[in-house]
Amino acid sequence: MSTKLATANQPMISISNVSKFFGDFRALDDVSLTVDRGEVLMIVGPSGSGKSTLLRCINHLEVPDAGEIIIDGKHVKPQERELNAIRAEVGMVFQRFELFPHLTVLENICLAQQKVRKSSRSESEKVARGLLEKVGIPEQANKYPPKLSGGQQQRVAIARSLAMQPKVILFDEPTSALDPEMINEVLDVMLTLAREGMTMVVVSHEMGFARKAAHQVVFMDGGTIVEQGTPEQVFGAPQHERTKLFLSRILH
């Protein structure tokens, strides 16, 4: 089979002609996009532009009404078993962290390793402690998430998705629920991941992160991709009026 040879060139995520409706509201309108291996893609746009919906379609937290999504050569379909296997390899970081408040930080990071990957307790804890070291909060391992600051919680959430050794991580506005002084500690962790070659799709308006780490920026509005290119192109020399208007509002 030639598929093995092809994987190196094949994109990590391929989104083709995806549409999504909420009732009569067209949240996504025939969106196509590819993300290469090791690429950091930023999605920006006003609220209601469909950027979060697109992100959530990638791992089928929202099931698209039309179009197809292929992750690492595997077609994402709503069938439970295949979907669970794909989701285990696609990390997701949420705006509101969504740590499990009844489990300690360590247990949060171990749960899916043990139940999905069937790792042993000691093996998964070793991985979890290593990841907490990596995100800079090894001393918080035995605390419960509500005891942590927002920035610490989001770093735990990143460690939790890293524990599954994902091929891609999806970030849904990872810093917008944080106090300003905690944003950088989270962005620093994300920068490290980007430098290590993690494939990332990030919905965020953090321009600093975009300039430092993003390979590609997509501007969405009204459920469609209005403009895409490198950060320099999209932020520096936007071609469309809607992009210019939006950037003028967020860059002050």
Partner: peptide, 23 residues
């Protein structure tokens, strides 16, 4: 329990039943 908890559990690859049971 907020919907986000189920989504976080499912996006880690847990089945619906496992998410119910453990989260």
């Amino acid at each position: 329990i907020s919907r986000g908890q189920m989504e976080a559990a499912r996006s880690l690859g847990l089945t619906h039943a496992q998410a119910m049971r453990y989260v």
